[in-house]
Design a binder for these strands. Sequence first.
DNA 1: CCTGGGGCGTCCTGTTCTTG
DNA 2: CAAGAACAGGACGCCCCAGG
Length: 309
Amino acid sequence: MRANKANLEINLLRTFVTGVQLGSFSQAAQQIGRTQSAISLQIKRLEQITGVRLLEKQGRGLILSPTGETLYRYALRILDMNDEVVATLRSQDVAGETRLGIPPDVAEICLPKVLMRLAHTHPEMLVEARVDRNRKLIEDLVAKALDIAVVWRNEQQVDNDDSALHYRDISAYTTDWIGARATRLVPGAPVPLVLMGAPCMFRDRAIAALDAAGIPWRLAFTSTSLTGIWAAVEAGIGITARTALGRPRGVHPVYNLPSGTPLPATLGTVRLRAIMRSDMPSATARFVIELLSVLDSQLTGPPDDEGSA
DNA sequence: CCTGGGGCGTCCTGTTCTTG
DNA sequence: CAAGAACAGGACGCCCCAGG
């Protein structure tokens, strides 16, 4: 006896998933570029293929039936696999080497995940990743020792209009004062600062903000590594100025000095920008575009399941 | 091997129905 | 009354297959 084989069409599943995620098949129609009735027909067809009712009416809208829930979970996996296969096949002609430069805080958060994912979809592309500070990354990019550098920039900063380079902004982050519970700020005493050695954008901002507010400060700890900075802050040696990116669990934003004087709230915003060479081979350029998209999703998407710790 | 007709699937517009 | 889903009828494109 043979089971009756029904084929699930990818485009029907995509419509179904889009509708469920948007909570409306009218909105799904807009997003997919079809009319609402076409979407309605597609869902009907999906129900015919599966032989079960996928949606139930609730008010003016539709909600998933229990079997619809099951299909939805499978559909996500099928679409994921479909997209991965297509991406892999399309990248078959990608071959070569991409030299990526990335700052320490970004590297700590997502570099392993980004590299793992790209190794999966582009096994033939060799990625050389270098973790270094802003200035060094840009020097290497200009010297053609890197193909792409992800760097911190001031919100208003305009990079030179160099036709040999392309720019793409990834995300913007606010800069905060960050300290630990153990940090002792003595009333009236200079604020102990934990900062990277110069040149450093966050260092410049912290010092300039305190100077502008007339708040005395002292350099309590410097380091050339971000790990060292966070360790010193966690140990309560002083406070630092950074974004929330990669902030350890033991530290938190600080707003006031013990005297009640607010810390300057003018640290402003910094922007993560990708600067890439415009003379990359097209295969490398295509790879870099995907790299940025993966990076973007890691930095701006919901946090991965890091366990319940 | 090429071509044209028929069948089928999909989508569109317009309309109706349902519900808040 | 407004918003969203479903239905009806027609248009269009693709595929298959028979005939030249």
